[in-house]
Design a binder for these strands. Structure first.
Length: 666
RNA sequence: GCUAGCGUAGCUCAAUUGGCAGAGCAGCUGAUUUGUAAUCAGCAGGUUGUGGGUUCAAGUCCCUCCGCUAGCUCCA
């Protein structure tokens, strides 16, 4: 007797083992037709999955309404793509073709270099395969038989994978569709007709089994949906991300520039970008001093010996700039991190337990020689400034300090409208002995991390084995307004640098004995470069009033009102606003257009009428014309918005700069 | 670093597939004096990323280097 529990709580019994599809049929012909896959006790399976007799299982029939079914569909689409590519090109070796967030990919090795010019032909062939509607059939074979199958097919990667990756599996499965047979765990949708819409997106290199020492393959990315509309929405989101690209907006809005003559990955902040950064830094500085941090400054270089003591050199020399050699025994490196310098401040005199926790903060600029292919705009660079601080404390103080760090990060993120994030907790791998510091101390710290996140209502996922060798960590992963994830802030415990082997840090305890402090590295924003890069994309360049490089612009209706306009501008500046004036002999419409495209939060339009009555006509970047009001009222309105650090909008269309005939989106 | 693609005026892009480097915007000059998303006219702007090669002729074809983009790998 087989008992099947359905999601609505009802139960069905079967005399013998049945397939998932049989259960669906038993429930109703409509469901059987709509069924794409099943979920048995939480595992997604195909409709042909056999539910064995003499057990009780939870079963959910998946249709296109279920998110999990989409993954199954996309994997099937990856097979269709592989089949199409094998039809069109000779000597195609198949590697892996999994589903990923937003779509799928398949890795191939073939003579021909695929480009996106090949996509139309491949897509046409895929469409043909889908129209033919041949079913995906699962075939199970013993390892020996399977090896023979893939050898006969001449699929060398699959042979290797069965021999090595699947060495533990007594049987393996294949899926066959027409002439196409592929080693595959499955499941698949019953037939390709469920693939309502698909598109190939890009092609790029990828290493076999992710190993840069192994062969490089060609990876084709694509996506698929049940219907055309979902595909179009997805493609629109991709376009949306492109429009928000901080590299494009950074250029259009004069925020930063990167020049090969200065060097790749080295950012120059233009006045407007520098203003945003200064505002953000000042905001963080205020917060740091409220939270008991002390500001310090340290140099940009340090002797190689400092980093030998810290253990960074030569271990990480690959990602450091080459040392500056003055004399044989006098070498300096551009600092790749601030902690050794901060440690020397700690060590500048004996420390008492009464001083702890000692919190040393610095916007410290560091240099890391990232490989050329890693560089990207402001988000991956070779020189960057961390909003860094190092906390020296006792083991007992760790939990409170963690809490403080996480609360501060929460506060900062909230002030910027970054409301969606999670915390990744990097914990020790219980089976490894690479870690510094006692197991009990680690356990205590890890427990504290979990507890702090829970009590603050933060979604935190422990990831064993993801800790650095020197201590557990908490990384903030921010979700921006279009759902992309960015790793920004971090809090990391360090048992290594204070240790005897490294800097041998000490403090005198209440017991008059020497003790060893714990160190916490923390940076709520991470780096100014990356954080502001992400902010640019998050706001699509339209910064909230408190962060906008130019907050208000005074526009004169004609040159006749210039004198009044300049007086208004003067008042705004005296009230502390970053204001400019547009007194050109252009028509008002042209000035407004320029202001909108430059994403200026407020424009104050002044003409003869205003000059007469002492008013300004306020134009809001988002809501448009707000009508005339006394200057003092406008100033009070802006001041309140700044004081509250109000985030009114994270996105409202493209900046549109440089695009002729672009639709008006504000 | 690897694979692939790309590099033309400050920006966005043309240039008959090897045959006189061009347009819009931005800039400058002048006219216009305007009330909520582009006033008109003129001017100027280039060693086509770099260095070499093939050719009567190279933006276009070949090679070198530099840079950018996508992805892979990496990220103390």
């Amino acid at each position: 007797m087989l008992k099947v529990k359905l999601p609505d709580g009802s139960e069905k019994s079967f005399e013998n083992s049945v397939k998932v599809l049989d259960v669906a049929t038993d429930i109703g012909p409509g469901l059987a037709k709509a069924a794409l896959a099943g979920e048995v006790d939480g595992t997604v399976v195909g409709l042909d999955y056999n539910l064995a007799d003499n057990q009780e299982v939870n079963l959910k029939i998946l249709t296109k309404k279920d998110a999990d079914a989409l993954g199954v569909l996309r994997h099937s689409c990856a097979h269709v793509m592989a089949r199409a590519i094998m039809r069109l090109f000779d000597g195609v070796q198949l590697a892996f073709g999994p589903t990923i967030e937003g779509g799928f990919y398949y890795d191939f090795d073939l003579e021909h270099s695929l480009t996106d010019e090949d996509f139309p032909a491949i897509e046409a062939e895929m469409q043909k395969i889908i129209s033919q509607d041949e079913p995906f059939e699962r075939i199970e074979r013993s390892r020996e038989e399977a090896l023979q199958v893939v050898r006969d097919l001449g699929q060398d990667f699959k042979v290797e994978h069965i021999e090595e990756g699947l060495a533990e599996h007594p049987t393996v499965s294949f899926y066959q569709q027409g002439e196409f047979v592929d080693l595959c765990r499955g499941p698949h949708v019953p037939s390709p007709k469920a693939i309502g819409a698909f598109k190939l997106l890009s092609v790029a290199g990828a290493y076999w089994k992710g190993d840069s020492n192994r062969k490089q393959l060609q990876r084709v990315y694509g996506t698929a949906f049940f219907d055309k509309q979902s595909l179009e929405e997805h493609l629109a989101r991709i376009e949306e991300a492109k429009r928000r690209d901080h590299r494009v907006l950074g250029k259009q809005l004069d925020l930063f520039t990167i020049n090969p003559l200065v060097g790749s990955g080295l950012v120059m902040w233009l006045p407007k970008g520098a203003m945003v950064r200064t505002l953000l830094e000042n905001f963080v500085r205020d917060e740091l001093s409220k939270r008991g941090y002390q500001a310090v400054y340290t140099p940009n270089v340090g002797r190689v010996e400092l980093y030998e003591t810290s253990g960074h050199y030569p271990y990480y020399s690959d990602s450091m700039f080459t040392p500056i050699v003055m004399e044989e025994d006098e070498k300096y490196i551009l600092k790749p991190m601030n902690c050794p310098h901060h440690i020397m401040i700690y060590k500048s005199r004996p420390r008492s337990y009464r001083e702890l926790p000692l919190r040393l903060a610095e916007f410290g600029t560091v240099y890391r020689y990232e490989k050329s292919g890693e560089l990207s705009g402001m988000t991956r660079v070779r020189g960057f400034t961390q909003d860094d601080a190092h906390i020296f404390c006792t083991n007992e103080q760790v939990a409170d300090e963690f809490r403080g760090c996480i609360e501060m990060t929460q506060f900062v993120l909230k002030s910027l409208g970054l409301d969606h994030y999670r915390v990744r907790l990097g914990f020790r791998d219980p089976n490894s002995d690479k870690y510094v510091g006692g197991e009990d101390v680690w356990q205590q710290a890890q427990d504290a991390l979990v507890e702090v996140c829970e009590s603050l209502g933060i979604e935190a996922t422990p990831e064993p084995g993801e800790a650095a060798f020197y201590g557990p960590k908490a990384d903030f992963v921010i979700n921006d307004c279009i759902g992309r994830e960015w790793q920004l802030g971090t809090v990391q415990l360090d048992y290594n640098l204070p240790s005897e082997k490294r800097f041998g840090l000490e403090y005198i305890g209440a017991d008059n004995q020497t003790h060893r402090p714990v160190m916490i590295h923390r940076a709520p924003l991470g780096s100014m470069e990356r954080f502001i890069g992400v902010l640019i994309e998050h706001f699509a360049g339209a910064f909230p009033l408190w962060l906008a490089p130019e907050q208000v612009r005074v526009l004169t209706v004609s040159e006749k009102s210039e004198q009044y306009g300049r007086a208004v501008l003067q008042q705004l500046r005296e009230a502390g606003f970053r204001a400019e004036g547009d007194f050109r002999a252009e028509k008002l419409g042209a000035k407004i257009r320029d202001g909108q495209l430059e994403l200026i939060p407020y424009m104050l339009i002044v003409g003869p009428r205003d000059a007469e009555q002492g008013t300004v006509s306020v134009r809001d970047r988002i809501d448009g014309d707000l009508g005339a009001m006394p200057i003092a009222d406008a100033i009070a309105k802006f001041a309140e918005e700044v004081r509250e650090r109000r985030v009114r909008q994270t996105y409202s269309g493209s900046a549109g700069l440089g695009e002729r005939g672009a639709a008006n989106e504000y």
